[in-house]
Structures are given as structure tokens and as C-alpha cells.
Design a binder for these strands. Structure first.
Lengths: 224, 224
DNA sequence: TGTATATAACTGTCCAGTCAGTTATATACT
DNA sequence: AGTATATAACTGACTGGACAGTTATATACA
């Protein structure tokens, strides 16, 4: 070993120390921020801890993001785009056979909702919604509104096609989505054990009730 | 102007200034705290502002509550007790005629969910759940778990009585409750316009689909 | 006079954001 | 190739303000 005066740790790390070009940094910082925000909440999360998690100094974070709030906004933006597209595409593809599409969706969506990693940003958005209504609204418009809208369109297509009787498509859509939201709230926010451990069975049970409720030959409830 | 050194406001208020006995204070402070917590979030809410809203000095608040966190806990406690009782009682009463009870519940619950005042504490709990899991868990156990449990029991009673076919009662319960949670999340947390402006009609549409789905003569979906 | 109720003023700590300076990589020039 | 210069990536140390919680003091009333 050459008689270098540098500390040993530097020798070990020095190979990769500056090789990392800036391109990857923002994402690393955002991941760190998400973890800290979820663990401590937006206000209680410290920029220094976020930086440390991203293996950076606090000042380093400010080279990429103007402020703590900018970090939050970038975080939501990053997740919003892909989800919205995926959801709408999936549902548009199902218009040909709405019944099959609903069956597929119910299982697929339940799997999504059970995954803590995928639920991280929604959780964050909900927790900060009171303080930053613009962020919450953006999320609602880009994600929730699209999802419910697509689902409603799918059921409306089923009604037009004669697969379902003429119920309020929006209400039916929310009878599919609502229980999923409830499950997500329960598990990931209120910290409960899964309400429905068997994803496939639960999805099947739900779709069974829903499809029977939508059946063309069912007689509508008399409104007393 | 008389050469009094006291500020004028004191003279005006002094008549009633000390008359207020301690009994009412805690509630006033809790109401003020709830408002501030909802407006700014738990961390950003300032004890001084809470005190001012309750027409007290900051130190005054500390005569009744030990800390900011104690305020939060007291707030949740205050709301938890009555709600849990009311909900279970309502549902137990309906076991004789589950169908009628579900119809009633759907409309009643939709009205509840539409009321911002009643949704204030749930909103707060959700927003702080990440930071204070014990509070969230307590709320889940005392309120959400009881509500879902009662609803499930009601539907199970309907199945036993022959009003409904033998579906998974828990799933059916969540198909009633889920859309309500979705509506609440939408309106009160994500700041959307009401998804369903006409409460009665929406409740009717939902119960129509659900009851048809539960009908004893419906044929169960084949699970492919 | 004593006790309960209240407050103004204070203290100690915490942390977002800044800045002056350092180290690694890239480029220009010989 | 080697050396000088520029610039990108990064950091340690600091500041200024905010705010939870405390203390010393005042008022009301029995």
C-alpha cells in the first residue's frame, strides 16, 4: 500500500466517489425523501436525514431541489404520470368484453392495493392533503378521477352492450373501487392486518355480488 | 380619556373575564385545536394560535393539557366513544329485518359522510396516522373495526334468515361501506366536488345493486 | 389570607436554507 | 504526454427565525 496520507475509508470508496454523474442523483434523493416523509411525516422529516439517506450532505440536496416543498411536489409528479396512463389503457382495452375486464381488474387491482411500495405515494398524498390542497387536487385529477372515470366508462359500455341492466354506472364503478380503497386505508394507513388475506377469493366474492347485482334479468329494487 | 394605564380592551371584557369556570375550558380548547390541526396540520399548528382561538394565552392551555400531543390524544378520545356506541346499537337493532336496515343505513351513512363537521376527526386521524400509529390503531379498533364488524353481523343475520344467499358477509359489508369511504376521501381529503350530489338517489342505486347481488335466487358466478 | 385561574415574558432547541470553500472531472493548450 | 484552467459536484459550518414548553407575576374571589 502506498504511503498516502488520506484516510482509509476514502481509499475504499474513492474509486466510485465522483464517478456517479448527476443524472441519477435526483431519483436517489426522491427515494430517500419518500422514505423519510412516510416514516416521520412531511414536517418532522429533516432535510439532513433525507440527505444522509441519499448519501449526500444537506447542501447537496439543495443543488437539485429548491426547497423541501419542491421535493414533495417532484415526488408526487414522478409517480402520477405512469399510473394514470396504465390505468386508462387497461380499461379502454376491456370495452369489448366488460364482464371479463371487470373480473380481471378486480383481481389485478387487489394485488396492487396490497403492495406497500405502490401505496407509498398515495399514503403520503393523503397525509399532506390538508396542508397542500393543490397537490392533493392534482393527484385527484390525474389518478383518482381518471381511474373512476375509466371504470365508469367500462360499465357504461357493458350497459350499452346489454351485458348489464341500466344502473347508474358511476355508482357501480364505486362499488368496485370503494372496497379497494377501504382495504388500502385499513392496511396501509390505519395499520390493520389485511381484512382479506386471500386476494383471489375476495376479488371473486366481490365480483360475484357485483355482477349479480348488475345482471340484466335482475328486477330493480322498488324505491319505497 | 381617563389616565388609566390598562389597555381599553381589558375594561370592556373584565366583567366576564374570570367568571368562566374550568368545566367548559377543555372542550373549548379541544375545538380550537381541532380547527388548527385541520387547517395547518399537526406539526405546523402553533400552540399560540390554538390558545388564541380558544381565547386564552398559550400558558393557559398548559393548565389543562400537558403537551401538544396530549391535545391530539384527548381530541381523538373525545370523538371515539360516542361514535362506536351509536354505530353498533344502530346495527344490532336491525337484525330483525336486515333488508330494511341496510336501506336505512345506506342513506343515513351517506348523510353522515357528507357532513364536514363529522368528518373532521377522521381526517385528522388519517393525516397523523403515519407519525402516531398508536392513535391510528386505537381509532381503527374502536371505530372502523366496530362499524365493519356490525355491518358484517347484520348481513350474516340476513343470510341466516334466508333473506340473502350465502355470500361472504365481510365482502358484502365492505361493498356497502367502501363506496362511502371513497366518497369521504374524495370530498373531504382530496378536495373534490361531491361525486354523488343526490344522496338519496345514490344510496338507493347502491342498495339496489347490492340487494340484487345478494338475492337468494341469484345464481352464483362460476369461478372460471 | 389562601387558592385557583390566568398571562407576559422568557429560554432552549431545532432546523430550513445559505455560503464560502474543497475535491473530482473535463477541456484546452503546449 | 503533461500541465494549466474551467467547471461540475459536493460539503462543513453557520444564521436567523420559529416555536414548545416554563417561570415569575398578577388578578379574582372565598
Amino acid at each position: 500500500m502506498p504511503p498516502k496520507s488520506r484516510p482509509a475509508t476514502l481509499d475504499v470508496e474513492s474509486v466510485t466517489r465522483w464517478r456517479r454523474r448527476a443524472g441519477e442523483r435526483p431519483d436517489e434523493i426522491l427515494n430517500a425523501a419518500l422514505d423519510e416523509f412516510l416514516a416521520k411525516g412531511f414536517d418532522a422529516a429533516r432535510m439532513e436525514d433525507i440527505a444522509a439517506r441519499a448519501k449526500l450532505s444537506k447542501a447537496g440536496v439543495y443543488l437539485y431541489f429548491d426547497s423541501k416543498l419542491a421535493l414533495l411536489q417532484a415526488l408526487v409528479d414522478r409517480e402520477v404520470k405512469p399510473i394514470a396512463h396504465r390505468a386508462t389503457a387497461l380499461m379502454r382495452a376491456g370495452h369489448a368484453d366488460p364482464i371479463a375486464a371487470l373480473r380481471l381488474l378486480a383481481t389485478f387491482a387487489r394485488g396492487t392495493v396490497a403492495d406497500p411500495r405502490l401505496m407509498a405515494v398515495p399514503r403520503l398524498v393523503i397525509s399532506i392533503a390538508g396542508r397542500f390542497p393543490e397537490i392533493a387536487e392534482r393527484y385527484r385529477l390525474e389518478v383518482v378521477e381518471r381511474a373512476i372515470g375509466g371504470l365508469t366508462a367500462l360499465i357504461a359500455a357493458g350497459i350499452a352492450k346489454g351485458d348489464f341492466r341500466a344502473v347508474d354506472a358511476g355508482v357501480a364503478a364505486r362499488m368496485l373501487a370503494g372496497p379497494l380503497i377501504l382495504e388500502a386505508l385499513w392496511r396501509h394507513i390505519l395499520g390493520g392486518a389485511p381484512l382479506a388475506p386471500d386476494i383471489a377469493a375476495t376479488a371473486a366474492a366481490q365480483i360475484d355480488i357485483l355482477l349479480n347485482g348488475l345482471r340484466p334479468d335482475a328486477r330493480p329494487e322498488p324505491t319505497p
